[in-house]
Write a protein that binds this DNA or RNA. Structure first.
Length: 485
RNA sequence: GCGAAGUUAGUCUAGUGGUAUGACGUCAGCUUCCCAAGCUGAAGAACACGUGUUCAAAUCACGUACUUCGCACCA
């Protein structure tokens, strides 16, 4: 399905919708998840916990969203998270100062020079607005972090632009109290905030968005030798370098130097297995190696996990080898001890980061799984059962002769273990169609035979087939189909 | 942020000066023991927000916000 169809679908069914919609001063880039969206998101997060976090013995924390200024001075965001921009005096067009200078003079200042350097070059080379040829105002800096005032004195702090900083800040404490050993994984799921200049495309580019980040603290001397990495298997990963995509096993990727070390390959394999379970079409994904220019300021080696959608390749996960950049900086600015003992050797661990965009992942799953079943004249969301916002629908075939009451009894039992939905109204076909559309994998229908012999029909979404089972077998049937795989 | 187009019920839509059309959806009832769009009825929009022009504005003008597309931006 294309972007527009998915968008309309999500809006119509209340998966997500714009925030503050009824007021004229609402801002772009803020969206809310409705009931079905929340269930879907929670199920996705639970899958992430099961397949990656618990699987790999990673610890999860929940840090605060507002963090003090010092954190971002140490992390480099206060300085590097800004762009030098210039505005035209007349037409108000905004440009990146560094980019415009490269274009006109081939001089590459980078984005972190003092503002007067940009100004000097613009004046010296007589650079004018490309749109209207008028002069520019003095360059300024645009910081993508939202600042916030704490307490009566409005002390400057920031809404975190990435969730990982609290993991770095907390690392020494976590390593001690959790009796850490390298490699040591810490994860966090939560909101991050970035003041995008132009948020677009609903939940794909938000100012407030969900991230699931994992930081693997490791010994840089063991990136190819730690015992755990020997578990690396022949999971096929798709790697794209300079526009060419290779399908290759994790092991081969390291041997052939596509991936710099086994640690990165190991987690790429894990991530691949996770995304395969979300139902994303893996043939439409790739790990794209970022060029020197594209990498973030803190990263030595970066791969983006991307999914192909109808609006192009979407970055779902950013994998960055951050070296000891973050820990050394926090150690330096806070004077806290960030070194640990590993094999009788005192080191500051390196960090490999897996930074997942939840909102974009959810969108990609929807786009790859929303199907138009022309033969049966229905729209079906072919979600994996464990991701479905409703696990099971409970219907009474007719609303009379005690069928309704019987369905009520089954419903109240089912909702203890599953996300269940009860519906009595209208024709049964219409109710099946509605549940298909939001991805409900199973529907139980109470009919006249139920009254006689305590059996119900259970309908399978994907092929619309039905089978009859005993009421007391429903729970184990659903458990097997939904949670065990 | 620039340029262009747009903004009428949950969704789509008619309506170019006299407070709004239709469909789908929703709800209630009927019908039907199994795959939507049969029947009856009901609710739901002062037409994005604001200002102005006018006796009168969804309809004209201006501003703002948002949406879409293009440019720029995406650490």
């Amino acid at each position: 399905m294309d972007y527009e169809t998915v968008m309309n679908f999500a809006l119509k069914k209340g998966f997500y919708f714009p925030s503050c919609d009824i007021y004229p001063d609402k801002s772009a880039g803020f969206w809310e998840y409705g009931p079905l969206g929340v269930n879907f998101k929670n199920n996705f997060i639970e899958l992430w916990r099961r397949e990656i976090i618990r699987h790999d013995d990673i610890l999860e924390i929940d840090g605060s969203q507002i963090m003090s200024k010092s954190v971002f001075i140490a992390s480099g965001h206060a300085k590097n998270f800004t762009d030098p921009i210039i505005k035209c005096q007349k037409c108000n067009s905004t440009f990146r100062a560094d980019k415009l200078i490269i274009e006109k003079t081939k001089i590459n200042l980078g984005e972190n020079e003092p503002l007067h350097k940009y100004d000097d070059l613009i004046t010296k080379n007589n650079i004018h607005c490309p749109k209207c040829s008028n002069k520019f105002l003095k360059p300024t800096r645009f910081n993508m972090m939202f600042s916030i005032g704490i307490g009566p004195e409005n002390e400057l702090a920031y809404l975190r632009p990435e969730t990982c900083q609290s993991i770095f800040v907390d690392f020494p404490r976590l390593f001690k109290i959790m009796r850490g050993k390298l490699p040591f994984g810490v994860a966090q799921i939560g909101k991050s905030f970035r003041n995008e200049i132009a948020p677009r495309q609903s939940i794909l580019r938000l100012r407030e968005f969900y991230q699931a980040e994992i930081e693997i603290f490791c010994n840089p001397n063991e990136l190819n030798s730690h015992q755990k990495l020997l578990k690396i298997d022949n999971t096929l990963i798709r790697i794209s370098i300079d526009g060419e995509t290779n399908v290759i096993s994790c092991k081969e990727a390291v041997d052939s130097k596509f991936i710099p070390n086994m640690l990165i390959a190991y987690y790429m394999g894990l991530l691949t297995k996770f995304y395969a379970k979300t139902g994303i079409d893996m043939t439409k994904t790739r790990f794209r190696k970022l060029s020197e220019k594209e990498k973030a300021f803190y990263s030595e080696s970066s791969f983006d996990f991307e999914a192909e959608t109808t609006i192009g390749w979407l970055e779902l996960v950013s994998c960055n080898y951050r070296t000891n950049y973050d820990l050394l900086n926090h150690a330096k600015f806070s004077k806290e001890n960030y070194s640990v003992i590993d094999h009788d050797e005192k080191i500051t661990p390196h960090v490999f980061e897996i930074s997942m965009g939840i909102d974009r992942s959810l969108y990609s799953i929807l786009e790859h799984n929303l199907k138009n079943d022309v033969i049966n004249k229905r729209t079906v969301l072919m979600l994996k059962p464990y991701l479905a916002p409703i696990h099971v629908g409970i219907l009474s075939l007719l609303k009379k002769d005690g069928l309704e009451e019987q369905a009520d009894v089954i419903y109240s039992e089912m909702k203890k273990n599953f996300i269940a939905f009860l519906d009595h109204s209208g024709t049964v076909g219409r109710r099946y169609r509605r549940l298909d559309e939001i991805g409900t994998p199973f529907v139980i229908t109470v009919d006249y035979q139920t009254i006689k012999d305590q059996t119900v029909t259970i309908r399978i979404r994907d092929d619309m087939s039905q089978k009859r089972i005993k009421i007391n077998e429903i729970k184990s049937f659903l458990t097997n189909k939904i949670f065990i795989h």
